[in-house]
Simulated assay, not measured.
Amino acid sequence: MPRGEGTAPREGPIDPGGFEVEDAGLGLHAYVYDIGSYHFNWHEELELLTIVRGEIEVCAGGRARTCTSGEMTLINPHQGHATLALSAGARALAVHFSPHVLEGVTPDWPANRFASMPGDSPRQLSAQARVRAAVAALLLEPVTRAEEAFRLRADFYHMLAGIVEAFPLTEPGVTRARHDSGNAVIAKVCAHLEQHFTERITLAQLSRIGGYNESYLSELFTRTIGMSAFDYLGRLRVRAAARQLAETRDRISDVALANGFPDAKALDTAFRRWFDKSPSAYRRHIATGPAAAEIAVVDAGFKKRFVPRADDDVRRLLTDWYEIVRSPRRRSAELAGLRTRADQLADAAADLARRLNRLEQ
Results as ranks from 00 to 15, higher is better:
275 F>H: 00
310 A>T: 13
291 A>L: 03
267 L>G: 00
278 S>G: 12
202 T>G: 13
185 V>H: 08
243 R>L: 08
204 A>G: 01
193 L>K: 08
248 T>A: 10
267 L>M: 02
216 Y>N: 15
195 Q>L: 09
186 I>H: 04
313 D>A: 13
306 F>R: 02
258 A>E: 03
186 I>V: 13
229 A>R: 11
238 V>T: 05
233 L>K: 06
222 T>C: 13
208 R>V: 14
215 S>M: 14
280 S>N: 12
278 S>P: 12
217 L>K: 03
177 A>T: 07
223 R>V: 06
200 R>I: 15
255 V>F: 00
224 T>F: 01
312 D>C: 15
252 I>M: 07
237 R>C: 02
217 L>R: 08
295 I>S: 04
297 V>A: 02
243 R>V: 11
254 D>Y: 13
216 Y>L: 06
310 A>F: 05
179 H>K: 08
214 E>D: 01
258 A>M: 08
309 R>K: 06
305 R>N: 15
241 A>N: 04
183 N>S: 08
270 A>I: 07
286 I>C: 02
220 L>W: 01
212 Y>D: 14
185 V>P: 03
215 S>W: 09
301 G>W: 09
190 C>F: 06
178 R>C: 07
203 L>C: 13
204 A>F: 02
226 G>V: 00
235 R>K: 04
295 I>N: 00
298 V>W: 05
185 V>S: 01
186 I>A: 02
296 A>H: 02
185 V>N: 02
252 I>P: 00
293 A>G: 06
182 G>K: 03
181 S>I: 14
255 V>P: 02
197 F>I: 12
293 A>Q: 09
299 D>S: 05
204 A>M: 04
197 F>N: 05
274 W>H: 10
311 D>Y: 07
199 E>D: 15
263 D>M: 11
310 A>L: 13
303 K>W: 07
240 A>M: 15
181 S>C: 10
206 L>C: 02
205 Q>V: 14
307 V>L: 14
209 I>P: 07
246 A>Q: 02
191 A>D: 15
227 M>Q: 03
234 G>E: 11
298 V>T: 09
250 D>I: 07
252 I>R: 01
267 L>A: 01
229 A>H: 06
282 Y>A: 01
183 N>P: 03
289 G>H: 03
207 S>P: 04
223 R>I: 02
221 F>P: 06
